[in-house]
């Protein structure tokens, strides 16, 4: 009987799921999406490279700027936490899938 009343209730409700590609779900302002490095601010201090658990963020020896391999990044925000000039931040982008591998900016390993 409990399930029957629930079924009748749900018949007149909106669907719980959303029509995804057309409508997007609300996400929090604190959400950690795609990582972004402000290259103008970056001073090349190597702190982010030392603190990255996966080795995704590495300072380029020529340009002295931090670069992120998006395929390796686990969005733990450790680099943003240790950065002295706060040039690393997380955007709200959560659709990070790509069709070509080189869009993830992979490094030669």
């Amino acid at each position: 009987m409990g399930i029957l009343t629930d079924v009748l209730k749900n018949m007149f409700k909106k669907p719980f799921t959303i029509d995804y590609p057309k409508k997007k779900s609300k996400i929090s302002v604190h959400f950690r999406g795609k990582i972004h490095v402000d290259r103008k601010k970056c001073i090349g201090c190597y702190l982010c490279q030392m603190n990255c658990p996966t080795g995704a963020i590495v300072v380029n020896k020529k340009t002295k700027k931090a670069e992120v391999d998006l395929g390796l990044c686990i969005l733990c925000s450790m680099c943003a936490e240790v950065c002295p000039v706060k040039c690393i931040y997380f955007t709200n982008e959560y659709e990070n899938q790509v069709r070509a591998k080189n869009k993830l900016k992979p490094r030669k390993r």
Partner: peptide, 19 residues
């Protein structure tokens, strides 16, 4: 999502403090 910033791997803490 609202509290920590990630839905599955929260990574909300550091040694001695929180983010």
């Amino acid at each position: 999502d609202e509290l920590t910033g990630n839905r599955v791997h929260h990574s909300s803490d550091l040694v001695g403090t929180s983010k």
